[in-house]
Design a binder for these strands. Structure first.
Lengths: 237, 237
DNA sequence: TAGACGGATTTGTGATCACATTACTGCGGC
DNA sequence: GCCGCAGTAATGTGATCACAAATCCGTCTA
């Protein structure tokens, strides 16, 4: 068959097996990916910085192959970029691209929040508790002036909320956006010192406990808008 | 430096070079990727079908390495999936995931259309002409009962319109969604025989020539809604 | 002092190989 | 007739190597 495809006839060995990795062990490329991803999300990698396959491989003590896979995966998610020559670098999104990314967040995240509110109706308490913890971490990061910690905690807050929506496809889209904005937002919050941030998370928690999905969506929209405004402000500097 | 990163000091060799491929030549992995991507977009690969690296490599006459890169890239875009054991297959999205994907399209595509209308204000004529051609191809595919051709032409229509928005980040998100819905939609249109499709493209073209971005966005929303309804209907079968 | 040039080094790409693990085939037992 | 099991074939992962191309560095020239 063309392209080496094989059609698994339904009902005849169609079951998805459980081959692969020896139970719990995760492949090397996955470890590399998760490491790089976490550092990008919290903005530990400077926009404009360049990576090398051999460098990544040596740092994480693997061969070039898993490093390649992880880097290419991040490139596919636009979390890393390749120059025309194939050099790897942490992208520095243009102002216009940042605007696009926030526009997408503004469209997608309120929807995700709305779904989370609806899906978590019968288990609001534990969700609220988890979110409250994340919010405390955010406050702590603000007090400490820890921009990287702030970005990480803020991402965790949103991730926890949206996870309740149980919408993996939407979640994947949003996470892809976060990966792209991460490095820049770290820089943004570093520049403005996490000052004067209006707390929309409080409103979000209230809406959630009130079972008001519309209000929750609105709070998240305001939160995203605030981030967009900051990014725009910082981009103008 | 950690993780093998090197920070390119701005102003000191910071220019993005033009290394890499010898001018116009595209890497083997890119060719494999484009081939697989095109086939997924138009639904030439059946949901549930399985691929093998060696099979893909042999089909396109390359070694296993570029095949791996291309496949992993598509996996990152959720256009292909890996079983827990690492087997590669064309995903068969659950009904709930399809609904998510269409919800995302419904949020993102009208926005992209709106931006296209605004950005293409001073060059509407050539855009309209291009879109009209794509629409003719769609009609032809419908007449011929060619489901695969329909999906391809329909995708091309939307892609042409959104390209005018010059919003690469948003475009990447939408294309990622298309890759995920492609195989299923091919199946959907094959099942219902491209019957009884209301033509929202006509309304879109009118709105575009009227410079009415709101009406254009509405037409696109209707178009996406129709696709969502068909998918839901087909999923129920 | 600034710019251009040439060579050494670095880098990504692609190919091939070894290996652990899993999926598949056919056979035997209940 | 159906299920389970052993042996074989196939698959993805990771490592290593060769190579072409581009970046980087020092030097020379105007």
């Amino acid at each position: 068959m063309a392209l080496g495809t094989t059609l698994t006839t339904p009902g005849q060995g169609g079951a998805i097996g459980t081959q692969g990795v020896a139970e719990g062990r995760q492949p090397a490329n996955e470890q590399v990916y998760q490491t790089l991803r976490a550092r990008l999300l919290e903005g530990a990698l400077e926009p404009g910085a360049s990576l090398t396959l051999r460098g990544v491989a040596a740092s994480l003590d693997v061969s070039m192959t898993p490093a390649r896979e992880a880097v290419r995966k991040l490139v596919a998610e636009r979390a890393l970029a390749l120059t025309p020559s194939g050099r790897i670098l942490v992208p520095l999104p243009a102002a216009a691209e940042l605007e696009e990314l926030f526009a997408a967040r503004r469209l997608l995240e309120p929807e995700l929040a709305r779904r989370a509110a609806l899906a978590a109706r019968d288990r609001v308490a534990p969700l609220l508790k988890a979110l409250q913890l994340q919010d405390d971490a955010i406050e702590a990061a603000i007090s400490a002036g820890d921009a990287q910690g702030y970005v990480r905690a803020n991402t965790a807050f949103h991730a926890t909320l949206y996870a309740a929506a149980e919408a993996p496809a939407l979640m994947a889209l949003v996470e892809s956006i976060w990966l792209q904005t991460g490095p820049t937002m770290r820089r943004v919050y570093g520049m403005i010192g996490t000052r004067a941030l209006q707390d929309f998370h409080e409103a979000a928690l209230t809406a959630l406990s009130d079972d008001d999905s519309q209000a929750l969506a609105a709070a998240i929209r305001d939160d995203v808008d605030q981030g967009a405004a900051l990014a725009a402000e910082a981009a103008a500097l």
